[in-house]
């Protein structure tokens, strides 16, 4: 069984340390793909993003998604870390790492995990304005559903 590591945490993560932990002591991995999702503020109006989650289910759902990706793409390892709480623009939100003998499976696996994580992992973003105003809940995007649904074609 390929190791799957999933954590949901308030604190930031260290991408390099997570990659080291995933590949330590192994000589069979040929490709490691990492994806980081950051809190962005293109308009310059965002104070912080507040991420609410469903404790227990958030970990369980991301773990289910990672195991599906491992089975589908024959991954050698998968790690997913998702933060919750208040996150400022420029800070990390989510990290996905996948490992496989060759690059394509690792790329596809990371893509698959992110597409399902965005639409099925129980997290909700609320914006707080830089001026102290409450901006409200971020709406789910149709594009995210489409991105997920492409994996069920073929």
């Amino acid at each position: 069984m390929a190791p799957v590591t999933v954590r949901v945490q308030r604190d930031d993560f260290d991408l390099a340390a997570e990659v080291r932990a995933l590949s330590a002591g192994r000589h069979d991995i040929g490709a490691v793909v990492t994806f980081s999702g950051l809190c962005r503020d293109e308009a310059g109006t965002l104070g912080v993003l507040e991420l609410e989650h469903y404790p227990g289910m958030a970990e369980a759902e991301i773990t289910r998604i990672c195991h599906q990706a491992v089975a589908r793409f024959d991954l050698q390892a998968a790690t997913a870390v998702h933060r919750f709480g208040k996150i400022a623009p420029g800070e990390n939100i989510v990290l996905v790492i996948t490992a496989s003998p060759h690059r394509q499976a690792a790329f596809d696996g990371a893509n698959f995990i992110m597409d399902f994580l965005k639409t099925a992992a129980p997290f909700w973003k609320k914006e707080h304005g830089a001026d102290g105003s409450e901006g409200g809940w971020v709406s789910a995007k149709d594009e995210d559903d489409s991105a997920r649904d492409r994996w069920s074609k073929d």
Binding site: G37, L51, H53, Y54, M57, A58, H82, I93, V94, M114, L117, K118, T119, A120, A121, P122, F123, W124, K125, W137, V138, S139, A140
Partner: peptide
């Protein structure tokens, strides 16, 4: 049983 809006994580 949990009730919630469409998810917006990631």
């Amino acid at each position: 049983i949990a009730l919630f809006p469409p998810m917006t994580g990631g």
